[in-house]
């Protein structure tokens, strides 16, 4: 993972997630939850931005023992088939080095800057902002095709997105998402279901139950289980996961 400290909002289990006390809303949460569903508490935590002490405490209290039980809630940003990495982060911004914290944040501000404005009149990141109001990205087939630039999942994660829900992924984007722990690359079981979503729809991604809910259209969809990749993303990437699970030694010197 390329970013500064991360608090992944996790609950000990799906049921706990639902019962867990709601974290005090941060400003980011307030922006994203115009419609608050009763059964799915908003556990979205901003990664790039500073966490409020309360949100951090809530995230810490929820623990991280059980894999893939996170719930993300917020507005969706919808893109089409074959969204390539040039559209996710245009090559001119690749001079930014993701492992440098200030440049990491800047990458977030350019997330989806390559989408043609005619087809996508609403930008993912509003002009002048560093992060996006959209918590979940919805796409079609072959999301993230093209280059191996890790800047792509990093830009999405740095902008504040936590999950991509697509029909399928290009290999390197999927792997980079898992290796960095930046975003959950999730797949819908029904091909074409993503077309029923519009940008701005309020959605919930419930990893524990493998469901994706569109509250605006009141429809619910099955997600393919994220499997072994879930705990890796939850830990914050492969290095963090390998340390957490004892696969590699903890760093002696920080």
């Amino acid at each position: 993972m390329a970013a500064a400290p991360t608090a992944v909002a996790t609950a000990a289990g799906a049921s706990t997630a639902v019962l867990a006390p709601r974290p005090a809303p941060t400003s980011a949460l307030l922006r994203r939850t115009q419609v608050t569903p009763r059964r799915h508490p908003a556990l979205k935590c901003r990664r790039a931005g500073p966490l409020t002490p309360k949100a951090a405490a809530a995230a810490a209290a929820s623990g991280g023992s059980s894999p893939s039980s996170a719930v993300f809630h917020g507005e969706a940003f919808v893109v089409g088939d074959n969204i390539d990495t040039d559209q996710i982060i245009p090559a001119e911004h690749l001079t930014l080095v993701p492992s440098k914290p200030d440049e990491y944040r800047k990458l977030g501000s350019f997330a989806f800057a390559g989408l043609p404005s005619a087809a996508y009149p609403t930008p993912f990141v509003a002009p002048g902002e560093e992060s996006s109001r959209y918590a979940v990205i919805i796409g079609g087939a072959n999301f993230g095709c093209g280059s191996s630039r890790e800047h792509a999942p990093v830009a999405l994660g740095a902008a504040g997105a936590r999950a991509v829900v697509a029909e399928s992924y290009a290999r390197i984007f999927f792997r980079n998402s898992v290796a960095t722990g930046e975003v959950y690359p999730l797949e819908l079981t029904d091909a074409g279901a993503w077309k029923e979503c519009k940008t701005g729809d309020v959605v919930t991604v419930d990893l524990g139950n493998s469901v994706f809910i569109n509250h605006t259209s009141s429809k619910e969809y099955k997600l393919k289980p994220i499997g072994d990749a879930g705990p890796v993303i939850e830990a914050g990437g492969i290095f963090a996961y390998a340390r957490k699970t004892g696969m590699i030694a903890s760093k002696a010197a920080a």
């Binding site: 093209g146 191996s148 792997r175 980079n176 290796a179 492969i238």
Partner: peptide, 22 residues
């Protein structure tokens, strides 16, 4: 760290692109 690393497969080797973390 480049997706066109597969170019080297022309030599009968396994070559593929990976991200920064890998």
């Amino acid at each position: 760290t480049d997706s066109h690393t597969c170019n080297a497969g022309a030599f009968g080797q396994f070559a593929t692109g990976i991200g920064n973390t890998d």
